[in-house]
């Protein structure tokens, strides 16, 4: 496997992890614009642990994820008292603050970045990615997934049905933050180097775009979105400076033509020939 191909695949795997980090809160009707912030927490924490305590990356990375999840929990509980866009803005503020904080933290190298001694290759990263995708998929085939979808579709009705709406939103958000932390840990340990500047708001925004582009209604959406977003700019490399222009134009057009994202649950069931009672009724009306 050539170095270029491995590089692209590693990026793809990490982007898929990020996409699921953004997917979980979005599936519960909340927008996290601070994915990069949580990734940077997970990345630096796991790098610090594996550097200083000589812990294996296999342990350090989930640990970084756990720390990012805890921070997510600490933010989600107070901010989720309100609704709508406020959580998105708070996560955005948190992400930028974390980044600025780490730039001034000399113990992890400050603005110069932080070298990481341990190194992991594509197979390990792919394994982690599979784990994350599998976990989210499992989660969404349980009652939890149904509850999250209900909260997303109509908070009031979900509340009337006896679901603890806020608890589900906090849970989805916290898990998303933890997954983002894992993504950051993978990044740090593959590239042997982590710097806070890379984890900017632009990264957070593009991650959210993966999910909204791929579709927020099914677990396959983020996978597809992250794949298209990682590979399309690579394929458009031929046209150098115009590639992001073409890319943005494609995005705008797709949003006009297919605002619900590329794949939806109903569509997949239709393709597989599995029609639920609900779909049939919907078609009858």
């Amino acid at each position: 496997m050539s170095g270029y191909l491995e590089g692209v695949l590693v990026l793809l795997a990490i982007n898929i992890v990020y996409a699921y980090a953004a997917f979980l809160p979005i599936a519960a009707g909340q927008l996290n614009l601070g994915i990069a912030g949580f990734a940077v927490i997970g990345g630096y924490f796991s790098a610090f642990v594996s550097n200083q305590l000589a812990v294996s990356p296999l342990l350090a990375i989930p640990l970084g994820g756990a720390v990012a999840g805890l921070v997510g929990l600490a933010v989600a509980v107070p901010v989720l008292r309100t609704r709508g866009i406020y959580l998105a803005l708070a996560t955005f503020a948190l992400g930028e603050m974390v980044r600025a904080g780490i730039l001034n933290l000399e113990v992890v190298g400050g603005a110069a970045g932080y070298p990481v001694t341990a190194f992991i290759r594509l197979p390990t990263i792919a394994l982690f990615t599979l784990g994350v995708v599998g976990l989210v998929w499992l989660l969404f085939s349980t009652r939890f997934g149904i509850a999250i979808t209900a909260v997303h579709d109509d908070e009031r009705v979900a509340d009337l049905m006896g679901l603890n709406v806020r608890a589900f939103q906090v849970a989805a958000f916290t898990m998303g933050s933890a997954i983002a932390g894992i993504g950051g840990g993978l990044y740090a340990h593959h590239f042997s180097y982590i710097e806070a500047q890379y984890f900017s708001i632009s990264l957070s925004i593009s991650i959210v775009l993966y999910v909204l582009f791929g579709g927020t209604q099914s677990v396959l959406g983020p996978l597809l979105g992250a794949t298209v977003f990682t590979l399309l700019p690579e394929l458009l490399r031929g046209s150098a400076q115009w590639r992001y222009v073409i890319f943005a134009a494609i995005l705008i057009v797709v949003m006009v033509v297919r605002p619900q994202g590329l794949v939806t649950g109903t569509q997949i069931r239709r393709l597989l020939g599995l029609r639920s009672e609900f779909d049939r009724k919907e078609q009858a009306t």
Binding site: Q241, A248, L251, M255, P259
Partner: peptide, 24 residues
């Protein structure tokens, strides 16, 4: 008629579009 996040996505895409047009 689309979901509430959709205009947000499109406006972000416009930001990318404008910036890269300027670069081009």
């Amino acid at each position: 008629t689309a979901q509430e996040f959709v205009p947000l996505v499109s406006s972000m895409a416009f930001l990318i579009l404008f910036e890269n047009l300027a670069v081009a």
